[in-house]
Write a protein that binds this DNA or RNA. Structure first.
Length: 325
DNA sequence: CCCGGTCAAGGCCTT
DNA sequence: AAGGCCTTGACCGGG
């Protein structure tokens, strides 16, 4: 138990302020197929990947200028990286320097970077092909983290997966599949409650059983819960992070509206956020809050602006603060 | 230049 | 069994 918590804000993948700086440029497989000169096509993929990483570095510089030390990298940095048609493609060779530059900058400025692989990475699938494809994708993420030269532990957040019409069975499937997940990947992962299937208590059950930190998504919890009172489970969330080198991490977003409750709004509602912060304040020394909003870093800046006017907030810098109790 | 259709990957719901 | 939808940013081609 500590006195106050230092809260740090982060955002996802791209900036609304830095123009022409996409870290997710791509080439679809269809397009790749249409190109006759495969060697040229591959070097075009490599150019795109390098450009994505270069843009990431620009984003990190922008973040650093605004004290933002927490950032989720795009999971589409290297187009077609794990596509079977490109088996044997040594993209790491092509991106090594850019990747290293990214990691060097992050380390120099003590930034926390992580990933959130796309929804088709499903570790509890009963289909072997889906499971294997998921592991392949996650091993790609391991390579990226290693290539940046930063520690692998707890860098990638994942949902539990599908329910397949039998949630208890799907949870047990996750546990049995877990034993086939490579050690590196296991070490890299965190699990997050989702908005339709696996709620906070499901994640805590798995997290405790398998030693995986639980990322609490407050918005998902509002949309999908077994027990609406998350506070009575909070100490278990805190505890799931006890062996992590990183502070507890959570996701913050606001519903778009009542009809599309599960969709992300442009901005984060600061009153809702403050109510949440007051509940958790003091439970840990530091906490990282990932802002998931349409307006990306714009939402982060707006939120900080909203908090700035309050007398129960003590600002540390442009992206972190204490809550006074 | 703008706009609508399309795109590797899973799961789920409807028909 | 098959097709549409979810969700999302990027890109392509047509107007």
């Amino acid at each position: 138990m500590t006195n106050w918590t230092r809260f740090r804000l982060g955002y996802v993948a791209m900036s609304v302020n830095v123009k022409n700086c996409s870290p997710s440029q791509t080439m679809t497989y269809k397009r790749f197929q249409q190109l006759d000169d495969k060697e040229a096509a591959v070097s075009r993929l490599e150019r795109i990947a390098r450009s994505n990483l270069h843009n990431c570095l620009r984003l990190l510089k922008h973040n650093n200028a605004h004290d933002i030390k927490f950032f989720r990298l795009s999971s589409r940095l290297v187009p077609l990286a794990t596509h079977e048609a490109l088996n044997g493609w040594n993209y790491m060779q092509a991106i090594r320097n850019d990747l290293r530059a990214l990691g060097d900058f992050a380390r120099k400025h003590t930034m926390r970077l992580d990933f959130h692989p796309d929804h088709f990475v499903v570790l509890n699938s009963p289909k072997e092909s889906v499971f294997n494809g998921s592991v392949k994708n996650l091993l790609h993420h391991v390579q990226l983290v290693d290539g940046m030269g930063i520690d692998l532990t707890h860098r990638s957040v994942l949902h539990v997966g599908g329910t397949y019409k039998n949630k208890p069975k799907a949870i047990e499937q996750f546990i049995s599949n877990w034993s086939y997940v490579p050690d590196d990947v296991q070490r890299m992962l965190m699990i997050e409650n989702d908005d339709k299937s696996f709620n906070l208590q499901d994640c805590l059950y798995l997290g405790e059983k398998l030693g995986i930190p639980v990322v609490f998504d407050y918005h998902h919890h509002l949309a999908n819960h077994e027990d609406p009172d998350w506070t009575s489970h909070w100490n278990r969330v805190v505890n799931s992070w006890r062996n992590s080198p990183h502070p507890l991490k959570m996701h913050i977003s606001s519903p778009k509206n009542e009809q599309a409750f599960r969709s992300h709004a442009d901005l984060v509602d600061s009153d809702m956020f403050m109510r949440f912060l007051k509940e958790v304040n003091g439970s840990v020394a530091e906490m990282d809050c990932m802002i998931e909003a349409k307006q990306k870093d714009g939402a982060l800046f707006q939120l900080m602006q909203d908090l700035k006017g309050r007398d129960d907030i003590e600002m540390v810098d442009e992206a972190s603060f204490y809550v006074k109790t």
